[in-house]
Amino acid sequence: MNGFAIVWQERALFLEGLWNTVSLVVAAIAISVPLSALGAVVLVEAPRPVARLARALIDLTRCVPFLLLAYVIYYGLPQLGLRFDAWWAGLVTMTLYNAAYLAEIFRSAWLALPKEGFEAARAYGFRPATLYRRIVLPQIAYASAPLVGGQIIVMIKDSALLMIITVREISFAANSINANYFTPFAPFVVAIGMYWMLSLIVEAWVRRVASGARLRYG
C-alpha cells in the first residue's frame, strides 16, 4: 500500500498527535508567558539577592538540554514521589524551559525601553501594578514579539522530543506508523508539514504584532 494511503488510514493517530502538540504548545504559552513576565519583573526590579536567585534558576534551566529536563521530570521526579502522566510531564518541561528563555527576552526588551515614560507614569500617580499592566508590559510586548515568535517556533519543534517520554504527539504518530508499516517517508513528511503549518501560524501572528509596532514606533 502507498505510504500516504497508510497515513490517511491512520489519520486518527495523526490527529491525536496534532491535538496533543497544539494543546501542549498553547498551554505552555499560556502559562510560560505570564510566568516569564513575572520573572522579568523579578530580574529587573527585585532586591539583589532575590534577583540573583531568579537569575541562577533561569540560567540553570537554559543550560540543561531539553531532552534531559523531560527525562528528569518524567522518569526522575516519580522517585521523589512526584508523578505526572506523559502529557503533563511534557507540559511542565515545555513551560519551565520556555519561561526561562522568555524571561530573558522580556528582560532585555525592558532594559532597552526609554525610561521617561515610566517616570511620567509615576508622576501621574500610577501604582506599580497599573504601571506594569498599562505602560511597561505592552511596550515590552511590541518590542519583543519577533523574538517571542522565534522562541515559540523553537518550542513547537522541541515538543517533538517529547515522544521519547511517550507523549502521543505528532512525531510519536509518525514514528509509530513507520514502526508498524515500515514506511518512513510519508508519515515523516506529513509530520514535517504539520510542524511547518504550525510555525506559519506563529509567523503570521508575529507579522501582525510587528505591523502594530511599526505603526507605533515607525
Binding site: 521617561e116 515614560g117 511620567a120 511596550q139 507605533r216
Partner: peptide, 15 residues
C-alpha cells in the same frame, strides 16, 4: 501625586 501634573523636557509620552 494626582494633584500635581508634570510636563517633561523630553515629553515622556507613552509611545
Amino acid at each position: 501625586r494626582t494633584r500635581v501634573s508634570m510636563v517633561f523636557q523630553h515629553f515622556a509620552l507613552w509611545p
